[in-house]
Structure formats: structure tokens, C-alpha cells
Nucleic acid binder design. Structure first.
Ligand code: SF4
Ligand code: SF4
Lengths: 162, 162
DNA sequence: CTAAATAGGGATATCCATTGTCCGTAATAG
DNA sequence: CTATTACGGACAATGGATATCCCTATTTAG
């Protein structure tokens, strides 16, 4: 059970978009070149972000993507769920219904204990992702990256932004 | 990103094994019939449990599986990791290495901030699973299931146990 | 106005993990 | 000895993830 690589791509792209000057847009082409990713396929991930309403887009030359909300209001969970979907990682196939001892008219009112535990763990995972915003990530990166690399990256983005 | 169904199967089988009288064994065949699952494939899941040391096995007629430890010492995480593996759900492909601004001699000492957040969420998920034991599950089930069904199931298992 | 660049989306091919089946081998109980 | 079992290797079927290609509508640059 491994998250799709599109999740990593989307997170990186959002991290870059978070540093974009107000009102500017960055194209799929620029994002793909920056990360060394296949442009067409990365486009699918960005479309997921767009459909989820996390980013805003414009067409034409100098078009592309920008964040739809402030980095303070965009969490890791938003991005992960946009790409990976909101389905819980544990699916219950109701195999308890096959229990040969069970009377035919028996009807289960509630999800069983096993499913509840698994869903609880799933929720803990989501809660952790919900607790970190893009703004938090930006602060950490600014602290940890060598200042020159950080500045060069900002310049590169600004240069390619439409 | 969805857990394999073998995880659900393994959890259900362990729940049954937890109710097995001391020293008795329950075969793949019985477990498969009880849950309405393909015997050969369920066998793979049980082999995973065996390789992880969670269950003890014997061969021959009246052979099968029993728990290797007390239900108090067996957590959901043990079972999930035995079947699903211990690999973290977020894999880092080091796409930051493709950043065109990065000097060629640059060497990343630590995993980046994005990966750390994702791995933190993964750990929260595991921690939650680690906090529930098979004994906890047994107590919940005994409380929630209709007493007659509970008793019938115990009898069925006892009848099929070698 | 025209041409180039862009997001979006459908169709398709490839790869790979999951799911499932089959069979041979060694061990063990009766 | 015989039936039953766990175990493991080989293999097929399925489906989701990955990746590419191409067409369309829209918008900006010139
Ligand atoms: S996880 Fe619970 S609800 Fe789902 S099949 Fe198993 S017993 Fe039933
Ligand atoms: S998640 Fe972090 S370590 Fe992994 S590729 Fe992205 S930046 Fe690099």
C-alpha cells in the first residue's frame, strides 16, 4: 500500500506555488521542467488539484496555476486527498456475513469492531496531515535550505511565471 | 491507496484464533470455510503471519494455526505489518535533486520537510494500530455480538479445532 | 486580427501489484 | 501406511498506476 507518486509531485508543486508572487501564474511546463517530471502526466495531478478547488487557473500564454487560497489555509490533507481521493484506506468487504453460525435474518446495525479500529487509525493519519499547512512547510524550507539555493529558486520561479 | 483484502482476512482469522482453547489448532480449511474465502489464497495470508512469528503451526491431520503469543501481546499493527509489509506508505523519489538551481556538488544531509511530514502521519497511523490489542478486540466483540451468535461461533470453532 | 501558448480531457498503451489457482514436497497424526 | 496438513514455487487473470498522444476551447502577445 503505497501512495501514488502524484502525491509527492502535487506537494512539491504546491510548495513552489506558495512562493509565487501575488497574481502571477506558473505553467505545467515550468513545473515539469523544475522537477524533472513528464509534463503530460504531471498535468493530470494538477488537474486534480484544480478540480478540488485548491488552485486557480488561466489559459493562454502566461497562463498556468496559482493557489486558490492562502498557504495558511491549505493543508497537506487537502493536497493528498485531492490527488489520492477521500476513500478510506481500509475497505470492509463484510466477510462477517459469511459466518455459518449466523442466523439468516441477522442484520448488522453497526460497522464491526475491526473496521472501526482500522478507520480510527485512518483518521489519525488524516488528522496529522490536516495539522500541517503549506505555510508551515514554507517556513521550514526557508530555515533549512541554503540561502543561496532558496534565493536562486525564487528567482527561477519568478522568471518563469506568467 | 487501499490496503489489501488479506489484511482484513488476517485480522478476522486472528480474532477467531484468539478464542481458540489453549493448545488446539485451527486449519486453513476451517478458517476459509468460516469466512467464505478461497482456501489457497487465504493460505498465503496465514503464511505471512507465520513468517512474522505471530502464529504457531503444526502439520498433519488436526494441524493448523494457533496464536504464538497471548492476545494481550498481539496488536493490530503486528498483523497489518505482517501482511502489508513495514514499508512506509510515502516513498520519496528525491525529485528535489532535479531542481535546476541546485549546484552540482550539493548534497542533502537530511530528508526534506515534505517527506518528514508524510512519514510523521504514517507513524501516527501505526501508533494508533499499535495501541489496540487482540484482547481489546475480543472484549468489544463479546460485548457487541448477540450472545447466541457469540456462543454458536465458539462452538463451531471448538468443533473444527484439531 | 492572428498566431502561439495554455488548461482540460478523452483515448490508449505499458507496467506492475494484487488477486487467485494449481501442484509438488515434507511433516505428522491416527 | 494413509490421509491431512503447512509451505512454497509457478503461473494466470485482473485492475490500478504510470505514461503518452492528440484534440478542443480559451486567452494572451504581437
Ligand atoms: S471488517 Fe468488520 S464489518 Fe468488515 S467484514 Fe470484517 S467483520 Fe465485517
Ligand atoms: S519528498 Fe522531500 S526528499 Fe522526497 S523528493 Fe520530495 S523534496 Fe526530495
Amino acid at each position: 500500500m503505497i501512495l501514488k507518486s502524484q502525491v509527492e509531485w502535487a506537494l512539491h508543486c504546491c510548495a513552489i506555488l506558495a512562493g509565487l508572487p501575488e497574481g502571477r501564474y506558473l505553467s505545467t511546463k515550468a513545473l515539469a521542467e523544475f522537477h524533472g517530471l513528464p509534463k503530460e502526466y504531471l498535468s493530470k495531478a494538477l488537474q486534480s488539484l484544480s478540480q478540488a478547488g485548491l488552485v486557480h487557473t488561466t489559459l493562454g500564454p502566461s497562463g498556468g496555476y496559482r493557489l486558490a487560497r492562502s498557504p495558511e489555509e491549505l493543508t497537506f490533507l487537502d493536497i493528498v486527498e485531492a490527488v489520492e481521493g477521500k476513500t478510506r484506506t481500509f475497505v470492509c468487504n463484510e466477510i462477517r456475513a459469511n459466518n455459518p453460525c449466523r442466523p439468516k435474518d441477522h442484520c448488522d446495525s453497526a460497522p464491526c469492531a475491526i473496521a472501526r479500529v482500522m478507520w480510527g487509525a485512518d483518521e489519525a493519519w488524516r488528522q496529522k496531515l490536516r495539522s500541517v499547512t503549506l505555510a508551515d512547510l514554507g517556513r521550514t524550507l526557508a530555515q533549512e535550505l541554503p540561502p543561496s539555493l532558496w534565493q536562486d529558486t525564487i528567482d527561477w520561479v519568478e522568471d518563469r511565471a506568467g
